[in-house]
Design a protein around this nucleic acid. Structure first.
Lengths: 341, 341
DNA sequence: ATTGACAGCCAAAACGTTTTGGTAAAATAT
DNA sequence: ATATTTTACCAAAACGTTTTGGCTGTCAAT
């Protein structure tokens, strides 16, 4: 069933049918209802390719997934997957194509963007994994590509982004721990040239100040790899030197696992005399014993919002926007309450 | 630059340009070369939507990702991700679109296929997560959709597929364990209505026979969930009742983790007086202590091969093919050698 | 010298929409 | 009663390809 046949059955012109279904106002409600009824009855939906050709809006959104650096880890890929799923839902409901490419190193990544922009003529891109200072933004502006980023650069120069609430998440965690009477709270971060790590550090420092806890530099470390053992070693040392620590905040799943190892090795009983809370870790949570308490983020929603913004950029009065995912603490078994003495 | 302008510059008709680039034989080599040269020079590539509309060929490969059942687990999503990355590489080099949809339940899955087939007019699909008897195959045949499956049904009725070598992997594991002088080898499977689980069971039984080991039904269990604790409980019981068991083969990462828990609880020293070996587990491997020995499969290659086959189906003399990924054992720390007495 | 086959090219139709630039009738304003 | 605006519709053009069904000239076979 195509629009020609449908219009014949309705006794209307093709134009009217198209405009009725397109939601234009120069169609009476009576007619529109009839058209919609018939469209449903005959199971009509416009041929997307014809429609894209005619409208000139062949909207494709591009996305390059790096499979190196922090993302070479299979662990992190599941969070990408969530994000992608969120994007896809929106894209499909809007009949927009999604062009995803993979890159194993920085050269391949560059090539991927070039292919997207110059060959596939993609005009919209989702950028992610932002460095504090990211050269891709300049590049995209140069080619007048519309983009929304997942993550933020150091300074937010007039672009739209979605992101975890990194600072807010740490605040939330700190509040939660302090409510449980923790005071000697350590933070295990990842190297801070990732902007999210920097923001989390900010959150930690500001939270301490807010709750009148003095920053102890022995309580803050950042690891450079995602090898759990490395985290475990560093954490063990920290706990031996500072046995008064009662809670560990871990920026990554891997360091969360490292923390568990370290505590086990030291004979500390997790959830009894030492608390561990980690970021996300949707994968690891279920695997550890006791099950890891964590702060989670709706990554699917993040993907959806990113696409919404990107599509809104076509509207005339669009202004740069942002969306911050609301963190939530999922209580499991690794945080304990300290009785006041 | 569109084909009209290009043909003008070449002094040729649109038809000839189109047919030159399309590889048709009614164009002289001399002309074809000229056309190709100009196309490159002016950075011309056909508008994909116009081309799809005119040819009636969507030039798109469809893929529906279920986010329910066995795949609601974030863990498994990373293996999808690998597969998708493999597919994408090939698709991009061939300039073919990839339409991926997500489904949260069986109804959404059905709708997704309908949308792909009837609306987007996709003619090629990658099917995965096959049941032993999968109704989708009939459906795809009915609509004359070309497809390649990732996984196999019970009977391989004349379609092309790629898959892990489930039976072979178990053989390999068994050989490896037996080489290390294990004889009392238990198998922890997942429910067998997943065909891969069935095949792995076959592998286990046949391997035993081959090595003249009598099957002991107390050594074989299959769990129905992916909750590690459930596996742990069942395994603990098994080990208490049959303390002579020296090695555990786990069909999933989750049961691998469960096995580790069970052994720890029983005071068995993993890699010393009990061995554990699991399937894949690219995620978990790095997290356990000791690091989990496993059999791995090149999932990226699997994705690539699937697409290769799917595209080859356009060739005239195509016959149903298959590709089996070669398993490999990655020795880490959970399998021990038993000294002969 | 005539015929047939073939190589190499092309004009026009087709693909199924959206959009443009209208028109006639109805409603409203003067 | 007339002029203006609004409502509701439509024919035809446009989108950029691919495909169909030619046509012309060349060359080998008769």
């Amino acid at each position: 069933m195509d629009i020609r046949n449908l219009s014949k059955k309705l006794g209307l012109s093709i134009t009217t049918v198209s405009r009725a279904l397109g939601g234009y106002s120069d169609v009476s409600n009576k007619t529109r209802n009839r058209v919609e009824k018939f469209a449903k009855k005959y199971n009509y939906s416009p041929n997307p390719n014809a429609s894209r050709l005619a409208s000139g809006k062949s909207n494709t959104v591009g996305f390059v997934v790096p499979l190196y650096g922090l993302n070479s880890n299979t662990l992190n890929q599941s969070s990408f997957f969530e994000f992608i799923a969120g994007m896809n839902n929106k894209l499909h409901s809007e009949n927009i194509q999604f062009s995803m490419m993979f890159a194993h190193n920085i050269d391949e990544e560059k090539q991927a963007y070039e292919k997207l922009i110059h060959i596939e003529k993609v005009k919209k891109i989702i950028l992610h994994n932002l460095k504090r200072n990211d050269p891709r933004i300049k590049m995209l502006n140069k080619y007048k590509i519309k983009f929304v980023t997942w993550g933020r650069t150091k300074d937010l120069k007039n672009y739209s982004w979605v992101d975890l609430d990194n600072e807010g998440s740490v605040n939330l965690i700190m509040k939660y721990l302090i409510k449980n009477n923790h005071k000697n709270i350590a933070y295990i971060n990842i190297i801070e040239n990732y902007n999210f790590a920097f923001q989390r550090r900010q959150g930690y420092l500001r939270s301490l100040k807010k709750h009148n806890i003095k920053f102890n530099k022995n309580y803050y470390i950042s690891v450079s790899t995602e090898e759990p053992q490395q985290s475990a070693d560093v954490i063990k040392k920290m706990l031996i030197k500072n046995p008064e620590i009662t809670a560990l905040i871990c920026s990554t799943e891997y360091s969360g696992v490292g923390a568990i190892k370290a505590c086990n090795d030291l004979g500390k009983i997790i959830g009894k005399n030492i608390s561990i809370i980690a970021f996300d870790g949707p994968v690891v949570e279920a695997l550890t014993n006791p099950s890891l308490t964590a702060v989670t983020h709706p990554r699917k929603e993040l993907g959806l919002k990113a696409i919404e913004m990107l599509l809104d950029m076509d509207k005339k009065n669009y202004k740069a926007r942002s969306f911050i995912a609301k963190p939530e603490i999922v209580e499991r078994g690794t945080v304990h309450y300290i009785e006041r003495v």
